[in-house]
Simulated assay, not measured.
Amino acid sequence: MKIIETGIEGLIGIETRVFGDERGYFFESFNEKTWKENVGDLPNFVQDNESMSHKGVLRGLHFQKTPHSQGKLVRVIQGSVLDVAVDLRKDSPTYGQHYKMILSGENKQQFYVPEGFAHGFLTLEDNTIFSYKCTNLYNQESEGGLMWNDPKLNIDWGIDHPILSEKDRFYQDFINFVSPF
Rank of each mutant, 00 (worst) to 15 (best):
E5F: 01
T6F: 03
E9I: 09
G13M: 10
I14V: 15
E15C: 05
E15K: 13
E15Y: 03
F19E: 12
G20E: 15
D21A: 08
D21V: 04
E22S: 15
R23F: 06
Y25K: 03
N31P: 02
E32G: 03
E32V: 10
K33E: 15
K33G: 10
W35G: 02
W35A: 05
E37C: 04
N38K: 15
G40Q: 08
L42G: 07
P43H: 12
N44A: 14
F45P: 03
F45A: 12
D48L: 12
N49L: 07
N49P: 09
E50S: 13
G56D: 07
V57P: 07
L58A: 05
G60P: 02
F63N: 00
F63K: 00
Q64K: 00
K65Q: 09
P67M: 08
Q70I: 03
L73C: 11
L73D: 12
R75G: 09
R75D: 03
G79H: 09
V84H: 09
V86P: 02
L88N: 01
R89H: 07
D91A: 12
T94H: 04
T94L: 06
Q97P: 09
Q97D: 10
K100R: 13
K100G: 10
L103F: 09
L103D: 08
L103A: 09
L103W: 10
G105S: 07
N107V: 03
K108P: 06
Q109L: 09
Q110H: 06
Y112F: 15
V113E: 05
P114A: 01
G116H: 00
E125Y: 04
D126T: 05
I129T: 13
K133I: 02
N139D: 13
E141K: 08
S142A: 15
S142E: 00
E143S: 01
G144K: 00
N149H: 03
D150A: 00
D150E: 01
K152L: 12
K152R: 12
L153G: 01
H161F: 14
H161N: 15
E166S: 14
E166N: 15
R169C: 14
R169W: 05
R169L: 14
Q172N: 08
Q172G: 04
Q172C: 06
Q172E: 11
D173G: 10
D173I: 05
D173F: 06
I175K: 14
I175D: 13
I175A: 15
N176K: 09
S179W: 00
P180D: 05
F181C: 02
